[in-house]
Structures are given as C-alpha cells and as structure tokens.
C-alpha cells in the first residue's frame, strides 16, 4: 500500500467506511467532496468516469480481485447524487467495497445519494460491502440515501453486507434485485439509529429464475427517539426460495416498523418471513451483571453483539 495525502478527518472516515488508512491494492476510485481525487484501473478491472459517475467493467474470469470506491463528504452543505454502474463479467470472483462517510461540522445539510447498479454475469461470485458513517457535531444534517440494484444472471452468487451504525441523521435505503435461474442473493443489513435519527430501508427481491434463492437478514437497534422502518418484499415468480428475517431491538422512546411482504406468483415458490421487535430482555442484562458488568456495559455488549 502506498501512503496518500488525505487529511486526518478523511483518514478517520476511510478507516470507518472501508477499513483503509492508505491507497489499497487493485482498482479503486476515491471520491472526496464531489470529485474523484484518485482513481486506478487494474489489468482486469476498468474504472472510468462517465457523466460524473463511475462505470466499472470487470472482465470475465477475473478472480480474487477487489475494487474500492469510497465516498467522503467533509464540506458542509454538499448535496450530490452519484450513479455508479458495475458490469461484472461471467465466471468472476470479486469483492466490491463501497461506503460513504460524511463529516459535517457546519450548519448546512450534507446529502449523498448513491445509485449503484450491478449487472452480475453468469457463474460469478460477488461480495459487496457498503458501510455508512457520519461524524461531526454541526447543526447541519448528514443524510445518506443509497439505491442499489442487482441483476444477477444464472448461477451467480451475490452477498451484500450493508451497515450503518453511527452518525447518519437520515437515511432512505432501497435495495432492488432480480435473480435468474439458480442465482443466489444473501443480504446482511445492520442498522443502528440514535438521537432523532430516522432510517428507512426497503429491500425488494424478484425471484424470476428456477431455483433462485434469497436470504435477507436484517438486525436493527433503535435508541432514544429515533425512528426506523423496514420493508421487505419478496416476489416469487418461479420454483424458488425466499427467506427474510428482521430482528429489531427497540429502546427508550424509539419507534420501529417492520413490514414484511411475500408475493408468491408460482405454486412452487417457498417464501418465509420472520420479524421480531422487542426491548433487550431484562434477564439478559441481569445475567451479564452477575458476570460483573454494569447495566450500561451489559446493554452495550448485547447491542454490539447483536449488530456484529
């Protein structure tokens, strides 16, 4: 890894959203305050800028390569919409590390709307990470609104880790996907809101192909007076399997709404939804207190474990 000229704040955000201190190996694009400040293609992964967004082409057969595309907003009042499109060839095995961090210490609102579209080729395996993070004590709000669309071809496998743990005042995340024959999608979503934050998540999956499967696991914690809503829609149009599980811990005066929706349009569609919302059980806190933790320590252990 080579060192790079990021500011301290930018480095802190990079560490949070993509786990990096410096420029990574492989292909990447770093977008800071609306501009691509550093970009590199690799032999198998082309990273181009088209209409202000990224077009990323991953050659068929590319294995064990990654592309990092972190976004940082550190100027107050910046509002942007960015469209990035990924064309992932057949028979690949790649990792996409997205993620956005906002630092807002001013009084104007900062907003990032990221639209990612992934065309995943046949027999390909894609791991997609997206972590959202906000910091800075300014009065200006920090908003992140990602829309992610996945079109998975036959026999492909896509795993998505979507995480927003701290500092984002409002978010509306939409994740749409369409799966062809034997394509498999796994979505792990982790969401925590506190203060007056609001978060809304819609995950809609269309199981078009035979033997296509989706597994959605959402875990959420809502603290203080924050509000969350989670809507999962699984449409089964063929012999397919869909499972979604939404677990939420509600605390203080927070509100959580979970709306499951299963839409079977084939007699061979097997769709399951599980949803549970509840406070931390008193017995769980008591147990950890008997092991020497204070009540506050016990609560944070339970929450951190739950969101891990």
């Amino acid at each position: 890894m080579e060192e790079c000229g990021f500011s301290e704040i930018e480095r802190d955000i990079l560490k949070e959203v993509v786990g990096l201190y410096a420029i990574p190996e492989g292909a990447y694009n770093f977008r800071i305050n609306g501009k691509s400040v550093s970009r590199k293609s690799s032999a198998n992964i082309d990273v181009d800028i088209v209409d202000g967004g990224l077009e990323i082409h991953i050659k068929p057969g590319t294995k064990n390569e990654s592309v990092h595309i972190p976004v940082i907003l550190s100027k107050t009042g910046l509002k942007e919409t960015v469209r990035n499109t990924f064309y992932i060839g057949d028979n690949t095995d790649v990792c996409i590390i997205a993620g956005c961090g906002i630092f807002n210490c001013g009084s104007s609102d900062s907003v990032h709307n990221g639209v990612h579209t992934l065309y995943v080729g046949k027999n390909s395996r894609v791991k997609y990470f997206e972590k959202h993070y906000g910091m800075g004590q300014g009065r200006g709000a920090k908003s992140l609104n990602p829309i992610t669309k996945v079109y998975a071809q036959e026999n492909s496998f896509v795993e998505m880790d979507l995480e927003q743990i701290k500092g984002v005042d409002s978010t509306k995340r939409e994740t749409y996907s369409e799966l062809k024959d034997r394509a498999k999608l796994v979505i792990n979503e982790r969401l925590m809101t506190h203060g007056r934050q609001t978060a809304e998540s819609v995950i809609e999956t269309k199981l078009l192909g035979k033997e296509s499967t989706v597994d959605i696991i959402s875990r959420a914690v809502a603290q203080d007076v924050s509000k969350q809503s989670f809507k999962s829609v699984i449409v089964g149009k063929n012999k397919c399997r869909g499972h979604s599980e939404c677990d939420a811990i509600i605390m203080d005066k927070a509100m959580v709404l979970a709306v499951p929706s299963l839409d079977a349009q084939s007699v061979d569609a097997e769709l399951i939804h599980e949803a549970a919302i509840g406070k931390i059980a008193g017995e769980q806190i008591t147990k950890l207190m008997t092991l020497g933790l204070t009540q506050t320590e016990a609560e944070s252990k339970i929450i951190n474990g739950f969101l891990k």
Partner: peptide, 22 residues
C-alpha cells in the same frame, strides 16, 4: 448485582438466557 459479582458472588440461573449475537 454488579458490585456483588465484583465482590465475589456468582450465580447460575435455573433457566439460562439466550443472547443473540453473543
């Protein structure tokens, strides 16, 4: 409870709790 635990008392519950994620 915490301070009794720190002072040297421990307790095994009749009905153990489950804690998701731990």
């Amino acid at each position: 409870i915490t301070n009794r635990a720190k002072n040297g008392i421990s307790f095994s519950f009749q009905q153990p709790v489950k804690i998701k994620g731990i």
